[in-house]
Design a protein around this nucleic acid. Structure first.
Length: 476
DNA sequence: GCATGATCATGC
DNA sequence: GCATGATCATGC
């Protein structure tokens, strides 16, 4: 680079101080002259523009960090536009590409992941769809090194990804496999398949990434300089090395397994209306709340620090005497307009299914509901492929505007609509059913329905079949 | 008893 | 006011 830089690339503090000046600015407001001089072409994403017009180096895909002399890797990432003061990650933080051929010969300490990402310089900007990339407001800038106990979990995650590649299963990698560090797809619609060492199968290109929950944790840290109050499962790095989150959860619950709901309600002084449809989910919440001494009644997934970082989803299931769940497992209602524009790869449903889940099973035994089992789970690769079929059929029904198949009335004169959405017979894994406050609770359609002629329809969501929950989650 | 449509208490 | 994590209800 010919020109003299406004920072010293060899000195981390100099880089950081220079980067900090970005806060509160947009690219346009802080590097206006540079962008004009270089006749900005309108091309390039936020990260590339920042590298070129603020840090004055050409975007590259070197295996070294962006500032090799200081060992610092520059990463930019979008925030959701929120009304509240707190910032939330819009998506996972994507790091370097996984080289399947090389990772199998690496140890963590000299891995390309660790060489590149041991120290991150993070620039978070507020994403707004309608705005030009040059006008995005930069909100948070700071550096991040992984705390020791997080690093132990990340090492395990990294090793798990390596193990899958070693086993010739790079094509079966899923974000749900791991806790903080995940192998996310990169490069669009299955594009650019890559060779893997121990199988003839080509595998999707994937990159290491930090889960959105982990990124939120970084954001909170950088924004406030201190951590929020959480319940913690892991006390220190030593425990992170020797135990897993799953072990710790199992241990904490071991004395409660076999207790009845009545026992638990009195043990934890729970005073909830048993008629509430989320009664058992609230019981679960209260139990975990008490077991981990969490002072506030907050969203479960967010108040155990490790659960927040790993984006763990908690589900409570009641089983009948014959082990069949009473009900299916629901997900948030999907947006009809959104689903027709999405591909499976970037769909909300796939993202939901690729979470790590914590299942709490209650089972009816001798007329008493008993806490039976606590289990971590993520969906196996082959079942994701089955869920994809359900999602695609749903998308087809919405895009073709053929949702309603018939309208009738039940014996009380209530209107009952039949739909063409994939039902339980369509797939062993999942199906589509209503999910709203009632049938008047609707979302807009991208195209009016042929039968009703209306441009809106009752909210629906994907559900995991209860036979699937029994066979593949409870039994397995 | 299963499949599917409809609905609800809660908490933010 | 709405999303969430569920349960209730009906028809075959």
């Amino acid at each position: 680079m010919k020109k003299s830089l406004p920072y010293n690339p060899a000195i981390k503090s100099s880089i950081l101080a220079y980067a900090k000046k970005l806060e509160g600015h947009s690219l346009k407001s802080i590097c206006n002259n540079e962008i004009i001089t270089h006749q900005y072409s309108g091309k390039g994403n936020f990260g590339q523009l920042l590298e070129k017009f603020y840090f004055f180096y050409e975007p590259n895909s070197d295996s070294e960090p962006d500032f090799p002399e200081a060992g610092v890797e520059l990463k930019t990432s979008p925030l959701k536009k929120t009304k509240s003061v707190s910032s939330r990650a819009k998506e996972r933080l994507v790091l370097n590409i996984i080289n399947y051929m090389e990772i199998v010969n690496q140890d963590f300490e000299e891995s390309s992941f660790w060489k590149k990402n041991s120290c991150l310089l993070l620039v978070f900007y507020v994403f707004e769809k309608e705005k030009d990339v040059l006008d995005y407001k930069i909100r948070i800038v700071g550096d991040w090194t992984f705390p020791e106990s997080d690093l132990e979990i990340i090492k395990k995650d990294w090793s798990q990804i390596k193990a899958k590649v070693l086993a010739g299963k790079a094509h079966e990698l899923s974000e749900g496999d791991t806790l903080y560090l995940a192998a996310c797809t990169k490069g669009g619609k299955g594009g650019n398949p890559r060779k893997q060492p121990n199988s003839e199968q080509l595998a999707k290109q994937r990159a290491f990434s930090l889960k959105p929950g982990y990124v939120n944790h970084i954001i909170e840290f950088l924004a406030s300089g201190k951590k929020e109050t959480y319940g913690k499962l892991i006390a220190d790095a030593k425990q992170a090395r020797t135990e897993t989150i799953e072990n710790i959860i199992q241990k904490k619950f071991s004395s409660l397994i076999g207790k009845s709901v009545e026992d638990l309600v009195s043990l934890f002084s729970i005073t909830i209306n048993p008629l509430a449809k989320n009664y058992y989910s609230i019981i679960t919440k209260k139990i975990i709340n008490s077991v981990f001494n969490v002072p506030y009644d907050r969203e479960l997934e967010n108040y155990i620090e490790e659960f927040q970082k790993a984006d763990v989803l908690i589900r409570t299931v009641r089983l009948k005497e014959n082990d069949m769940p009473e009900q299916e497992i629901s997900f948030p209602a999907f947006d009809y307009k959104k689903i027709v524009d999405e591909s499976w790869e970037d769909s909300d449903f796939k993202a939901d299914l690729e979470h790590k889940f914590l299942f709490i099973f209650f089972k009816m035994e001798k007329s008493k509901l008993i806490l039976k089992k606590v289990k971590f789970w993520n969906m196996p690769f082959e079942d994701l492929a089955k869920a994809e079929m359900v999602w695609k059929e749903t998308k087809r029904v919405v895009s073709d505007g053929i949702i309603v198949s018939s309208i009738g009335k039940d014996k009380n004169g209530k209107i009952i609509r039949k739909t063409n959405f994939p039902g339980k017979k369509f797939s062993s894994v999942a199906h589509v059913r209503p999910h709203g406050i009632n049938s008047n609770d609707t979302y807009d359609l991208p195209k009016p329905d042929e039968y009703t002629k209306a441009n809106f329809y009752t909210k629906h969501c994907f559900w995991l079949n209860k036979s699937y929950v029994r066979d593949k989650i409870y039994y397995d």
